[in-house]
Structure formats: structure tokens, C-alpha cells
Amino acid sequence: MGDTRQKIAKRASLEIADGMIVNLGIGIPSLIPDLLDSSTKVLFQSENGILGFGPTPKENPDGALGNAAGYPVSIVDGGSYFDSAIAFGMIRSGRIDMAILGALQVSENGDLANWIVPGKRVPGVGGAMELAYGTKNLIALMQHCEKDGKPKIVRKCTLPITAFNCVKKIITEMAVFQITEAQLSLEEIMAGYTLKDIENHTEAEFTNSLQLKEHNQ
């Protein structure tokens, strides 16, 4: 499972391009700074009040310099600190280019559920509603299925919604999906999996862009 999380995070890190301002959620996304190609010129923003955090410090971690999950980070040249209200001002007003969040379920039209399993797990909504509200490009990372094998990419979310029609891309250990105008399409099959695996473990309806691409060539 540790490997799966690393694999998803590594794939997600490829989405980050030079010049972006990126917010990372807790869970799998928080693994990204340590996996990102160090030549990428990016500023990571976090809700607790930092723009420009870097990888986990190799020595002398500082209890007063952490990410949203409470783990130590470093600060890069040009970084800044501010209060949480300002951090969310940036988020709601659309200053963040990309947010990469963990998810419990994503529906085929891009609805995101990632904050509560009623009666069971109550992590809490945190900043997810506002990241989904204000961010142009929202990427959801998750294991493809629940532990009992139930699909998490669904026709309609059964868990309470965080935000509607907001997810633009889904990355799992099996596949990468794109959501454009409320339409889910398969973009990539990860090494070690087949189209059949993905069809068997995905409840949502999707078009296969891979086949389309081949057909067009």
C-alpha cells in the first residue's frame, strides 16, 4: 500500500509544470514535494499560511514550519508566511493554479466527496470545499477501489459531496482519467494493469481516449 501511494503521488507530480502555484491536500498529495523533480520551478501554497514550501528538511525539522498535515517542510527562496484568512483569500479568489487533493469518491461528472463517511470516519471538511471552489485545475488522487474492492470512481457519489463538478483529473494506481465538460475519459493505463482491470473496477461510465487516439493515427 505504501508503494501504491508513492506511485500515485509520483504520477501526480508530473502534472506540475514550471511557474505554477500549487496547493497539496493531506494524505497522498503531501508526498509530492519529496518526489518532484527538483528543477521544477513551483511554489507550493498551504492553508496554514505559507507560499513557497519545499521538501522535508534533511536535518533539524522545525515544529513551527509545517504543511497542512502538521509535518515539517522547508521554505524556498521567495517564500512567505501569512495568516490562514489570507491563505483562503488566495484560494477562493482563484490565485491557485492547481490543487491536488485526496478523495473518497469522484463521480463521472467531477463531483468530489472527500470529507466524511457518515457514522464511520469523520476527518472533517478542512479547506477542501474552498479549494474545489476557487481552483482552476483540481486533481483528485486516490486508490482505485476501497479496501473491500468497491469502486471509488462512481456514477453518482453516495458519500456527502464536498463540491460539485470540480474535479478535472483523477489519478489512481491503475489509471489516469480526465473530466471535460462533465464527461469522464480514460487517458492513461498505469503499468501492470489492463483496460479490462479498469473496466472491472470502475463503476462510472467513461470514454476511452486511448483507443480514440490510436484510431485517429
Binding site: 483562503f88 483569500g89 469523520v122 471538511v125 474552498e130
Partner: peptide
């Protein structure tokens, strides 16, 4: 919270700050 001993109201983080 589940035992009914702590009443929890969730507020989106930035909205809570505001």
C-alpha cells in the same frame, strides 16, 4: 461525537476563519 458526548459543527476552514 459519535457517542453524542461532543456536539461538532463543521465549517469550511477559510469560512470559519472569516
Amino acid at each position: 461525537m459519535h457517542e453524542g458526548k461532543l456536539k461538532v459543527e463543521f465549517s469550511p476552514q477559510g469560512i470559519l476563519n472569516e
